[in-house]
């Protein structure tokens, strides 16, 4: 659990959460080893999980041949970067061996819908993260989160 929290703290999105929120989020995470060439999420399949990179490198293959590489511990691969209306919109492939923290999409969305302050904090940092790392991805608003993501 402490390892999970340490990874969450490394990323820009979750690093400013309150300790109790860390605990709640951390409790929902599951460690998963990844192997080079492994597909973590496949476009058009039902979106079941979001990911936080713990180690390794992931390639997110998007529409129109666009791609983004995530290689910093704490990078979050979820929400509009990964799914829309409950379906994966991009494919996530591991470029090298490593580890991710996986969280069920429904659990994550339930958690942030229950707590508006938590949602606001996460969305604020998430939007900054997208602007910095994936400026070409269209950002979405909070209302109707489950529908959107």
């Amino acid at each position: 659990m402490s390892g999970t929290l340490a990874i969450l703290k490394k990323g820009t999105i979750f690093s400013s959460l309150a300790p109790t929120d860390f605990e709640r989020l951390g409790a929902l995470m599951e460690k998963q080893d990844i192997q080079e060439g492994e597909t973590l999420a496949m476009k058009k399949e039902r979106a079941t999980r979001f990911f936080i990179l713990s180690s390794g490198t992931l390639l997110i293959a998007m529409d129109d041949g666009k791609s983004v590489v995530m290689d910093r511990p704490g990078d979050f691969i979820g929400m509009e970067l990964l799914s829309s209306k409950g379906e994966y919109i991009n494919t996530v492939i591991a470029l090298e061996n490593g580890e991710v923290l996986a969280i069920k999409r429904d659990d994550f969305l339930d958690l942030i819908q229950e707590d508006s302050l938590l949602a606001e904090t996460i969305m604020h940092h998430w939007n900054s993260f997208l602007e910095e790392n994936v400026p070409f991805v269209e950002q979405k608003e909070i209302p109707g989160m489950a529908y959107h993501y």
Binding site: E36, T57, L59, M62, D64, G65, K66, S67, V68, V69, D71, L95, E96, V134, P135, F136
Partner: peptide, 17 residues
């Protein structure tokens, strides 16, 4: 491919390509 990215031989244009 990962090795080439880490070495900076393949670099992003920050627009997805």
């Amino acid at each position: 491919l990962c090795h080439l990215i880490k070495a900076g031989i393949i670099e992003p244009d920050h627009q997805g390509d």
